[in-house]
Design a protein around this nucleic acid. Structure first.
Lengths: 199, 199
DNA sequence: CTATTTTTCTACCATTTGGTAAGTCTTGGT
DNA sequence: ACCAAGACTTACCAAATGGTAGAAAAATAG
């Protein structure tokens, strides 16, 4: 047999790819298995059901994302630009693992079966982010605005950058996308000007 | 029989609802028909295939959205605040027809079967929006930045507001969402500060 | 009223779907 | 050598899916 859990990892990887591109309903266990050169029942053996597979993929993805952000939010160094750190961090994930954000997008759809699970897992992180922003606002280091809106906007933008790019690229403009580093710089500037307190 | 095309309209309405919430793959023609009190074959009679139905729904939605934006982009009155007009216009659509943006979100997924169609229909509109922004930048009425990014950000934010709200609401914060009017105000301010030229 | 066209329905079908049952094969422990 | 547990497979299935064929019903035109 395949040495220790290798199969499970491979299934998770392919499943992430499939879920985040063609979606949950669009993913067939048979096709998934075939693309892996195994039988469908092997998948079900490891993850019990299709839903179980989705949950497993989701848990793994959220974990990666959370760890990446937690690290930044935890630091208390007032000399570091936290917003810049956050943007950099998210961009890094988005570039290295675009599928991960694709899954997030897929799963965060109102009618998604995994929405509650995502809610439970991402909830605390979001609360922290929001309350941190509100703290900054109170302290006058950030312009008072709707923290939820800013978070939603930033989140949506990054997810959009990772997934919906294709539309804008092929539809809107034929030009090649700007290098992601420059893009990140723009987003950073965009956020900063909006969040810096007046005067 | 039902008088003139009433059935067709009803099918389109329900289909929009279903596509934009549970997605294309998640929509069953049988269920759709049952919820309308008709037989599946009636749907196929009017729209030939499931794909045909999706195309029809998409065409209708894009038309509404386009008309709403075209109107704003067309006006040349320099005394009006075009950004405000745009935001207002999109918000109005988002509030009156949230399902419409849900469909957009669903269909703009990379792997969506209707992505090319959406591309063709929305393409010109996006090009116009971008080139208008670039014109404003040239004229110094708008800070020079990445027009594509701003468009993507604004688009994603609004779509997010219309669809992904649930996650933030139930997950992030239990607080009731701020009234949409206030929300619109915030987004407006957010965009303005980012786009107003320095000094 | 009759003929024709439009609309909706009943009957059916091939395929695909997620999932169950039970087997085989491999590995590691004793 | 034997056995138990783990990993993977073959065989099978009930339900659901999108779609075809053709009849029936309703609306419309003459």
């Amino acid at each position: 047999m395949a040495p220790r859990g290798e199969t499970k990892e491979r299934i998770l990887a392919k499943a992430l790819e499939s879920f985040s591109t063609v979606g949950y309903d669009g993913t067939s266990l048979d096709d998934l298995a075939e693309s892996l050169g195994i039988r469908k029942q092997t998948i079900l053996y490891h993850f019990v059901s299709k839903r179980g597979l989705l949950n497993a993929v989701l848990d793994e993805s959220v974990k990666i994302l959370t760890e990446s952000l937690e690290e930044v939010l935890a630091s208390n160094d007032p000399h570091r630009d936290r917003i810049e750190d956050l943007v950099r961090s998210v961009f890094r994930v988005a570039l290295e693992q675009p599928l991960l954000l694709g899954l997030l997008r897929e799963v965060s759809r109102p009618g998604s079966p995994a929405a509650p699970r995502l809610k439970n897992q991402m909830g605390p992180l979001m609360e922290r982010a929001i309350s941190w922003m509100e703290g900054e606002m109170e302290a006058g280091r950030m312009r008072k605005t709707d923290a939820q809106l800013v978070l939603l906007s930033a989140y949506s933008t990054v997810v959009g950058l990772a997934t919906e790019i294709e539309i804008l690229r092929t539809a809107g403009v034929e030009r090649v996308l700007r290098p992601s580093a420059q893009r990140r710089q723009e987003l950073l500037h965009f956020l900063r000007t909006s969040l810096t307190p007046a005067g």
